[in-house]
Design a protein around this nucleic acid. Structure first.
Lengths: 295, 295
DNA sequence: CCGATAAGTGAAAAAAACTCACCTATAACG
DNA sequence: CGTTATAGGTGAGTTTTTTTCACTTATCGG
């Protein structure tokens, strides 16, 4: 008889943890708390009477035995999962999870989502918006990230670069535009707190030396920045192309033509790499196609 | 990510049930109630959305899908179990379970058990005595059974035949022996209820026709029969060689030399067939050797 | 037709898993 | 060089899952 008591949860936990080398990420992937993961791994180690992870303070690393155990166990787990899903008549609920900055989501992604849901009505989508660029998103299948350098992940697609243009609302446009760049030292300047030096960079870029803004207002979301500008609070640096809608519907008006081309680009990154999850590839393809960009 | 929710218990249950084709036996093997097995299998079937067993009233049979599922799953489960026990540093507690008639146990097996426990002090033994010959013992690793024909199990060893001889206690011997066979129609005859016709068979065997016993007392254990004869209640048909001890220490006395050689023999049967469980083979070898019999 | 037997059911009890609130150690930061 | 933030560990308490219990059903074999 099998000497196998109840290791399935523990093994699953272990496999995921061995892959991400972080209990916190593992917990997110498995929809658990880090505490539960810790308990599971601990119990597995006690059952086997074999330490699998070495606990560093802010990280975990596999022990030698842990590495070998992962090598041995992971393929078998996958095989078992394949066999089961092969026999399972319950059609697996297809679901893809994706994370992206919230402004990207509201301006570009969500508006075009109708096309996706019509094309693939049987694939569920889980959209998670992140506020900060450094927020970890390894637990989603895909991420759209803004980054100055090509992501280190193996599967990553370049989407498009981002540039910033000065914008205000249409009532103030005539008055402010006529003043030329000097207006920027007379009205509040709005920007996103993630790029606090963007206005100075813009000034330098257009050759405006000795730039002395009257006031700079940092907001913690691009949506707030755009709304503030729209309501006449001041002049904002608005990202393109993702804010194109605000200009085309007249909510915002370009104040000056000069734009700041940042080195940042949007990338689409794949975290999971399970060849069986065709639905992930479908969403990748749809995103690339929807934004008129090829790999 | 694996679409594998919590199937381990269920799969274990299924594999065992597929092997014994009985939820009751499965339950005994897994130390559960039949109800728990039923719930488990039901839940597994619901998860897979695939019927695995066809429920007959007093039996279960695998559906076609169930057979294929077993073929696919069982080797993988075994592989997984092997890998885990390979890594497990906790030395597995070796244990063999064996069932046998209670009289066999008390007369032959237990008295010689000192030898076993000295030779293999690290192997635990679980002895289960059965009262009725039809009691199912498939959940133990081994069984010693009394049977008129070679058992159908693949691994079965012939131990020895059984014969019955008339016996009483030594006080009554002189008086009763002198009366010849006629005494059997004057004193109570004792026998085990499993062989209610044994006395008539004996009579026929020795050529005593028109046998008219005064009284026949059936007891439900061989121990009771022997004790009753020892206490002078009457003449009992006592099995040999397993009761040899009662004669050698004078508790019982052969009344007549004629013995009834039954067609029944003791067999040692192996139920489990896991090549990894070397401890089972050790017990088999010890039993065969201890009773001076070869396969 | 009756009695025995294997399986199914649903509610209750037991056991396991998970979360919560708090703790520790240290890496990253100013 | 202290401060802060972060990943992980712990144990009690709660939730969820699993098992049992008591009873029902269906039918096999007399």
């Amino acid at each position: 008889m099998l000497p196998l008591h109840t290791p399935m949860r523990g093994l699953r936990c272990f496999c995921v943890a061995a892959e991400c080398l972080s209990f916190k990420e593992t917990a997110k992937k498995l929809y658990l708390t880090p505490s539960a993961v810790s308990h599971q791994i601990k119990q597995l180690e006690e059952n086997l009477n074999l330490p699998l992870f070495e606990r560093k303070t802010r990280a975990v690393v596999l022990t030698e035995a842990g590495k070998r155990f992962y090598q041995a166990i992971a393929p078998q787990m996958e095989q078992l999962a394949n066999t089961i899903s092969e026999f399972s008549q319950a059609q697996r609920m297809l679901e893809v999870s994706i994370s992206m900055p919230e402004f990207f989501a509201s301006e570009l992604f969500v508006p075009r989502l109708i096309g996706w849901s019509e094309q693939y009505p049987n694939i569920n989508l889980k959209l998670e918006t992140v506020k900060s660029r450094r927020e970890s998103t390894k637990h989603t299948d895909l991420s759209i990230v803004l980054s100055g350098k090509t992501p280190t992940e193996i599967v990553a697609y370049d989407l498009f670069p981002i540039s910033y243009i000065p914008a205000c609302n249409s009532q103030q446009y005539t008055k402010w535009h006529s003043k030329g760049y000097r207006v920027l030292e007379q009205v509040p300047l709005l920007l996103h707190q993630a790029r606090p030096h963007a206005w100075h960079q813009w000034a330098e870029h257009v050759g405006y030396h000795n730039f002395q803004p009257k006031q700079i207002i940092q907001l913690d979301s691009m949506f707030s920045v755009a709304r503030a500008a729209q309501q006449g609070l001041g002049v904002a640096l608005i990202p393109l192309p993702i804010s194109a809608g605000w200009f085309s519907n007249g909510s915002l008006q370009r104040l000056f033509e000069q734009e700041l081309l940042s080195r940042d680009r949007y990338y689409l990154v794949r975290h999971d790499n399970d060849a069986n999850r065709n639905e992930i590839q479908l969403l990748i393809d749809w995103i690339l196609q929807s934004f008129h960009l090829e790999k």
